[in-house]
Deep mutational scan, measured.
Amino acid sequence: LVRYRTISKIPQITLNFVDLKGDPFLASPTSDREIIAPKIKERTHNVTEKVTQVLSLGADVLPEYKLQAPRIHRWTILHYSPFKAVWDWLILLLVIYTAVFTPYSAAFLLKETEEGPPATECGYACQPLAVVDLIVDIMFIVDILINFRTTYVNANEEVVSHPGRIAVHYFKGWFLIDMVAAIPFDLLIFGSGSEELIGLLKTARLLRLVRVARKLDRYSEYGAAVLFLLMCTFALIAHWLACIWYAIGNMEQPHMDSRIGWLHNLGDQIGKPYNSSGLGGPSIKDKYVTALYFTFSSLTSVGFGNVSPNTNSEKIFSICVMLIGSLMYASIFGNVSAIIQRLYSGTARYHTQMLRVREFIRFHQIPNPLRQRLEEYFQHAWSYTNGIDMNAVLKGFPECLQADICLHLNRSLLQHCKPFRGATKGCLRALAMKFKTTHAPPGDTLVHAGDLLTALYFISRGSIEILRGDVVVAILGKNDIFGEPLNLYARPGKSNGDVRALTYCDLHKIHR
């Protein structure tokens, strides 16, 4: 019993810090008490220290592992850092350059016999395009090294910054494609005289377009951006097909006994025919423009016929181009109408809503002055909100995010209106959640004399007048207030005048 009563005193000691020596009952000389009392004092002292730490809000209350900052290894790049964003855009520009100039170089340097010394005699450094290609190869190699040090988000939505895990993730992902696209074939085969082989191998750079397509997928929600990307894709495919079309004609031209190829026909049409040795002929500019003209006309199913396939190889390629053109029509131009419709969806919704308003007016036989006010209010409210119901949009977000959005939407009023000066951010967040926005066209009466005042109004834009009878008592403008002081009276009061809008007004109100 003594032991039980001794232990039962522990909660009292913990909360009230009572010393055991003052209790005459606990001072009985028993061996059990002498053993338990020192333990009680020690526990009391420890609990006292913990309570003191909690009340003082000291940093040592938290466990040590929670006080440590997340460790980022040296030379690790955050995937959302500004440097990584700028670097990704730079790589994107280099990939676009590669997609345009690599097929052009591979096709127009394929057994090209233009006048001038061969590239091997001039030297590697004197070729501007080769120098640019070398810079692109170096940048792609540097990009691989950067990807080995860039964080990523795993399946659990955690940012991984450990170098080993980053390397394994990159090896399992895009490393092989990036490595093949970054191989400097110019340096590996330079001086061997195989410019045709170098041009063909350099087309491996186009593998990076797969990554670019995935990154550009984030802009699919913007109709104008999608339309622009589709047109660029169409032009890029036409450019690639033009390079292939020229390569076919250029390879067949020296081996044909009869002059029936499209390059021969082009030379005869523009007065620059090929001679018996295969030299001469149109310039590279004429060849490229004509090839691009043929691919565009074939892809769009126009086909004027002034550039036509004559050999079997050219006919087979033309059939493939027609098939590609039909697929592009289905996948690209078939979506253009939907994209344009999405661009004008706001206008369509406006006309639909206006039609419903006019049908309501016609069905209920609203008189002319009231009908005009109804239409003007709808037009003004639509121009202010673009038909978007803010309350319906915010309803799907958590309250903390709703408060931040409301604070942002009402920031101008909260910053410049005098009653809100000096208020804490928590108070402003709470008030912003209570605001209701209303609009009024010129001549609209917001409050009639004798109406119950259940709200306090803040003028965000425009001006109003307060009338008693036919006498203008006051004219209020931006950041002015009218209405009933909230919670100042037990019952809502009545208006002693009319409140009429002089201009288009936007008002925020808080109800009782």
Rank of each mutant, 00 (worst) to 15 (best):
F378M: 12
M433L: 10
H73Y: 10
I324K: 01
R373T: 10
F378K: 04
G281D: 01
I96Y: 01
T300K: 01
V210S: 08
P441C: 14
I96M: 03
L446K: 01
G303H: 03
L94F: 04
F363M: 15
T352R: 12
Q365F: 01
V307N: 03
R349N: 07
A107R: 01
K84W: 05
F140I: 01
N156I: 05
E158V: 11
I96V: 12
H73I: 05
R429V: 03
D286F: 01
G422Q: 13
T76P: 01
G249L: 01
T98R: 03
N310V: 04
Y222K: 04
I340A: 12
R371Y: 01
P442N: 02
V180W: 11
C400S: 04
F108E: 01
Y65N: 05
T203C: 14
V226D: 10
G422R: 08
R429K: 15
L216W: 04
A106K: 01
S276M: 05
D268R: 12
Q379W: 04
K425T: 15
P369G: 08
A423N: 01
H162C: 11
T385C: 01
P118I: 05
Y104M: 01
Y293F: 11
P282M: 03
V321N: 01
G443C: 01
E359V: 01
F420I: 03
A338R: 04
H351R: 08
L200R: 04
R358M: 04
G223L: 04
F294Y: 03
D257Q: 06
I324R: 01
P282D: 01
G261Y: 01
G223H: 09
M179D: 01
E221Q: 13
P254C: 15
A247S: 01
G334C: 03
N410C: 08
A235D: 01
P398T: 03
R214M: 03
I405Y: 01
L236E: 01
P82Y: 15
P273Q: 01
L110P: 11
T445W: 06
I177K: 01
S297M: 03
H239W: 01
T424V: 03
T347P: 04
F228S: 09
K285Y: 14
L401Q: 01
L401D: 03
L343S: 12
D444H: 04
K425D: 13
I405W: 02
S283R: 01
L394V: 04
L343P: 03
E121Q: 11
I135L: 07
T98V: 10
E196I: 11
A291E: 01
P442M: 04
A107I: 01
I248H: 01
N265V: 15
P369R: 03
H439G: 05
A99V: 01
C406T: 04
M328D: 01
P442V: 04
D186Y: 06
R71V: 14
L188F: 13
A224H: 05
L409N: 09
L206V: 05
T102P: 01
L241D: 01
V132K: 01
L197S: 03
T385Q: 15
E114L: 08
T290R: 01
S308P: 01
A130F: 01
N335W: 08
A106E: 01
H239K: 01
I244F: 01
T352P: 03
G305T: 01
G191I: 04
D143P: 01
F234H: 01
R371V: 03
Q365A: 10
M251E: 03
A181Q: 04
H73Q: 09
L299Q: 01
I96R: 01
Q353F: 03
Y65K: 08
L292P: 01
K84L: 03
L401M: 08
Q269R: 03
H416A: 08
R218P: 03
K215L: 03
G193H: 11
S283K: 01
R358C: 03
G164E: 06
F363T: 13
P442D: 01
A440H: 14
G396Q: 15
W87A: 01
L67I: 03
G173H: 13
G303A: 13
S192Q: 11
K436Q: 12
I244G: 04
H162T: 10
V142Q: 03
Q372W: 03
R342C: 04
H416K: 08
H439N: 08
L92I: 05
M433Q: 07
S331Y: 09
T102R: 01
L67A: 04
P254G: 12
I361Q: 03
K434W: 01
Q68M: 15
E376A: 10
S277N: 15
P117G: 08
G261H: 01
E359C: 01
Y124C: 01
R429F: 01
A330K: 07
L355A: 13
I361S: 06
Y104W: 01
L327S: 02
T150E: 01
G249H: 01
F333L: 12
S81V: 01
R421F: 06
I324A: 01
W174V: 04
T437L: 12
M231E: 11
L236I: 05
I166K: 01
L187R: 14
N310E: 03
P369C: 04
V212E: 03
A182F: 04
H79G: 01
R74C: 06
T233S: 14
I138M: 03
V321Q: 06
Y344T: 07
I96A: 07
V100E: 01
G249N: 03
L292E: 01
E221W: 04
E121F: 07
L229D: 01
Q402H: 03
F175C: 04
N275W: 01
E157Q: 14
A247D: 01
P273D: 01
Q353M: 03
C243Y: 01
N391E: 08
I388R: 04
G261D: 03
C122Y: 01
P70F: 10
H416T: 10
F360K: 01
G325H: 01
G280D: 03
Q341E: 06
Y274E: 01
A238T: 04
K436G: 09
S283E: 01
L355P: 01
F378S: 06
R421V: 09
Q253E: 11
F363C: 09
F101S: 04
A392M: 08
I260Q: 04
S383V: 04
L207N: 04
L323Q: 01
C406K: 04
I177L: 04
Y170M: 01
G325P: 01
Y246T: 01
L110D: 15
F333M: 05
F435T: 06
P184A: 01
L129E: 05
N410H: 13
P441A: 12
L401H: 03
V142A: 08
L292I: 05
N391C: 03
G271S: 01
K272P: 01
M390T: 04
K434L: 03
Y288C: 01
R218A: 08
F304I: 03
K395H: 15
E115Q: 06
G281Q: 01
V357H: 01
R421Y: 06
E195Q: 15
F140G: 01
N265I: 15
V336Y: 04
N391G: 12
Y104S: 01
I248N: 01
T311C: 01
I144H: 01
L187P: 09
S308W: 01
G281R: 01
Y97T: 01
N306S: 01
E115M: 04
N368I: 05
S194I: 10
G193F: 12
A247H: 01
V210C: 09
L78V: 05
E195K: 08
G164W: 14
A224F: 14
F234T: 01
L409F: 04
G422N: 15
L110N: 15
T437F: 12
L227P: 03
F294K: 01
Y293K: 01
C232A: 11
L145C: 08
T203M: 12
A392Q: 13
C417I: 07
D88I: 01
L216I: 14
D137T: 08
G123Y: 15
A381S: 10
R429M: 01
F108C: 01
S331C: 08
I144E: 01
G199Q: 13
L446F: 09
F228D: 01
L201T: 05
D286A: 01
G303T: 03
L134P: 01
V180E: 01
F294N: 01
K202I: 01
P442A: 08
I146H: 01
L428G: 02
I96T: 01
T437Y: 12
Q353D: 15
H364E: 01
L227F: 13
S105P: 01
E221M: 04
Y80C: 11
V321C: 03
M251D: 01
G281P: 03
